[in-house]
Design a protein around this nucleic acid. Structure first.
Length: 441
DNA sequence: TCTGGGGTCCTAGGACCC
DNA sequence: TCTGGGGTCCTAGGACCC
């Protein structure tokens, strides 16, 4: 049996822990640049704010309905997440942290009252962290996900499902008839793995509810769609295709991209930005002990600025030797940028991605056609380099990101136009000493 | 005026091999 | 004029997830 534990409206809930006055009010958390709503309280959802909806489209609700918007505070959310994950992990032999606000638990070999365990988990997380969660149980991960959806929806929209399923729901404990009743009122689009496109195509084919899907012909589904959907249906029927991965594998690609506060046209400013992004991905690669075989860089204008000429080049630079060295990666990225940059365009976004990642130290040997000295020199150089990068990371950990870096990534002006807007960010209550909440007598 | 930032997997099609 | 039959590997693009 699997469980899926999920924090309700994670980012908003994190903010509410430290600002209880936000409880019961419509609240959204905005993306980078205060651009889009990326988290919504139930009250904000009820006002009609959609996921990823641009802020300027709903801003009028500030005045009209008391909507409150906050800038994203990922440092806070990350810390709250690790607290919640630590607590959830105590309840099962194995845990897979699936995203910042969700984890799967594998209850294989555990007997007893799962709903009781779920209620205890929920109460403990709520009391110890202040975060409200929903817990779903099922015989497969896909069914656990679905159970979680039911638990959340039953809580939020009374009447949608039996009230007993609110907050904690175990689909595995139901009779066939009870389960069918749940599947009959659940849209296929609510299933994990079925998104907008496939959901719409299924509807066209007359498959509207999860019950329809479970009874659909497997062979024709596979033919029309893919093995991915086939696995999803098998899982919905109770056949395990996905297991809990408690030892996370390193990422296969590492990306840093961002929109700018204002359009950027000059190569020198873009070079500074791309250098910063490349420094960041290099740091991430070292953190997971990977070396990159290639660097991909893109810059792009905005499709929303209809009157602007558009340009969105992307270049992949293979590296002779895979590396996680900031200097090498910044060098390659800046070189790629210089090759594709064209003057006169309003660029609004850039990104650097590391691909072809492999474990550090697993390197292709080189045939030394010269003296042998060159190779020795390369080895010595490599050792110096990893010590240097180690020192760089240690300094930045201690004094804050960006304390030490390559010169091309330096913030040359105090108010560079590309620095993102973040006008409504709350304090980093749990990770910065000078930002801890103050209690007044 | 203002529109996020990460990731994964699968498939089709082309290049290339013998 | 007629123009094979297997493979593999890589990439781009599309779907999905949060």
């Amino acid at each position: 049996m699997f469980a899926l534990v999920d924090v309700n409206n994670m980012y908003v809930s994190c903010e509410r822990v430290f600002r209880p006055s936000l409880v019961g009010r419509p609240v959204v958390v905005l993306s980078n640049n205060d651009g889009c709503a990326i988290a919504r309280s139930n009250e904000a959802k009820d006002l009609g704010v959609k996921m990823a909806q641009p802020w300027f489209q709903v801003r009028h609700l500030e005045r009209e309905a008391g909507l409150i918007a906050l800038s994203a505070n990922f440092e806070l959310y990350g810390d709250m997440s690790s607290r919640m994950m630590t607590l959830a992990a105590r309840y099962a032999p194995r845990q897979e942290v699936y995203s910042i606000d969700e984890c799967f638990l594998d209850f294989e070999g555990v007997s007893g009252d799962l709903v009781g365990i779920g209620r205890d988990l929920r109460a403990t997380v709520l009391q110890w962290t202040g975060l409200p969660t929903s817990v779903g149980f099922g015989p497969t991960k896909t069914l656990a996900k679905l159970a979680n959806h039911v638990a959340k929806t039953a809580d939020r929209k009374p009447g949608s499902y039996p009230a007993a399923l609110a907050q904690v729901c175990d689909l595995g404990a139901m009779s066939r008839a009870e389960l069918d009743d749940v599947l009959r009122v659940t849209d296929v689009g609510d299933v994990w793995g079925i998104g907008r496109k496939i959901g719409a195509r299924l509807h066209e084919g007359g498959i509207r509810t999860v019950l329809d899907l479970v009874h659909a012909d497997m062979a024709s589904l596979r033919r029309q769609f893919s093995v991915v959907l086939e696995k999803t249906v098998l899982e919905l029927r109770g056949t395990t295709c996905l297991s809990v991965e408690d030892a996370p594998s390193p990422n296969q690609q590492i990306m840093c991209s961002r929109s700018f506060g204002e359009p950027v046209t000059g190569l020198s400013e873009l070079t500074e930005i791309v250098s910063q992004f490349a420094s960041r991905v290099a740091e991430k690669a070292r953190a997971q002990q990977s070396a990159a075989g290639a660097v991909q860089v893109f810059i792009t204008t905005s499709a929303f600025r209809k009157r602007d000429a558009q340009h969105g080049p992307s270049v992949t630079m293979p590296l002779v030797r895979p590396t996680a060295d900031t200097r090498a990666l910044v060098g390659a990225a800046v070189h790629a940028l210089a090759g594709m940059y064209r003057p006169g365009f309003n660029y609004v976004k850039a990104g650097v991605m590391l691909v072809d990642l492999r474990p550090q130290g697993q390197e292709q040997g080189e045939l030394d056609l010269f003296t042998g000295a060159a190779e020795q020199e390369a080895v010595a150089h490599h050792q110096d380099r990893s010590r240097l990068m180690g020192a760089l990371d240690a300094l930045n950990r201690r004094f804050g990101r960006g304390a030490v870096g390559v010169a091309s990534a330096a913030h040359r002006t105090a108010h560079s136009s590309h620095i993102a807007r973040q006008e409504r960010r709350s304090p980093r209550y749990t990770t910065r000493l000078d930002e801890v909440p103050t209690a007044r007598a």
